[in-house]
């Protein structure tokens, strides 16, 4: 289970202030901490720190410049502004570009055209959302249909199916309970859409929005997702219980060979 560390996000106050004042310390600290705790990517999202679209481009460039030198991990450039993502991609060093994630593109033609062309040009990976202009569908089948469209469009642009991370979009279970089992069904089907199979990802914390015990819901859903073919989550690597569950799913799905220290090995990428 790969972890996209979610903490460098302008929705958190320390990061928001850091971006606005161009004070890098909070971003550096969180990037390092997430790497140490076992992330596979550092997600960069300016979120509400920017007042307008022009600012987003500058903020993304600044975040890449600040975070890239302090971590060995690849970055996930997280924005709805594709100029910002492109400006960020220009700054990624060659060794990491193939693992860099564009986060994200929905199933809308204009956006797909732009993003997949960009992914093909830079040779990086893309998070694809199974939603279109109408929003997030309820049923698994509709999610899978959108995933197929995304895979087909990526293919036409020259982006391989295994460079995609398809996100079937989980919604908060306290208001949209119906979605949780549908997303699990969709995960399993997405893995059969192409050969090599596309990767799957979820913005995990979304499932527990505004619930009192978020960690419990997150890690339970992580285990359920893993059994259905979930490959990666955008999540908080500081959540020890979550990381322990993530490590254990790899053992119980026979993806990693058991050793008593398997949790430690999971979190230490140099092992």
């Amino acid at each position: 289970m790969k972890i996209i560390g979610e903490r460098v996000n302008g929705m958190f106050l320390d990061i928001r202030e850091g971006i606005q004042k161009r004070d890098p310390q909070a971003l550096i600290d969180w990037a390092k901490k997430q790497e140490e705790l076992g992330s596979d990517w550092i997600d960069l999202n300016a979120g509400p720190a920017c007042a307008n679209e022009a600012e987003r481009v500058e903020a993304m460039k600044w975040m890449v410049e600040v975070v890239q030198p302090v971590t060995k991990l690849p970055l996930a450039l997280d924005s709805t502004n594709y100029d910002a993502i492109e400006a960020g991609l220009e700054l990624i060093d060659d060794a990491r570009i193939a693992d860099t994630l564009i986060n994200s593109v929905p199933c809308e033609q204009e956006k797909m055209d732009r993003v997949f062309a960009m992914a093909a040009k830079f040779g990086c990976k893309v998070v694809c959302l199974t939603m279109d202009a109408k929003g997030v569908p309820q049923e698994a089948d509709s999610r899978v249909a959108l995933a197929m469209e995304l895979v087909a469009n990526a293919d036409m642009a020259g982006v391989a199916s295994d460079d995609l991370y398809i996100d079937p979009l989980i919604l908060p279970c306290n208001v949209a309970q119906f979605h949780a089992p549908e997303v699990l069904k969709a995960l399993a089907q997405i893995k059969t859409l192409a050969d090599p199979a596309p990767n799957t990802v979820l913005g995990l914390s979304n499932v527990s929005q505004k619930s009192p015990d978020r960690s419990l819901i997150n890690r339970t859903y992580l285990a359920m997702g893993a059994a259905c073919g979930l490959d990666a989550v955008i999540a908080d690597p500081c959540d020890d219980a979550l990381m322990e569950v993530a490590a254990t799913t790899e053992i119980l799905l026979n993806k990693k060979i058991y050793a008593d220290s398997y949790v430690k090995v999971y979190r230490e990428k140099n092992l």
Binding site: I257, Y258, A259, D260, S261, K264, V265, L271
Partner: peptide, 13 residues
């Protein structure tokens, strides 16, 4: 025993 093998390598490292 592959599990002990792996564990021992971890302990040594």
């Amino acid at each position: 025993d592959i599990n002990i093998c792996k564990q021992l390598n971890i302990l040594i490292s």
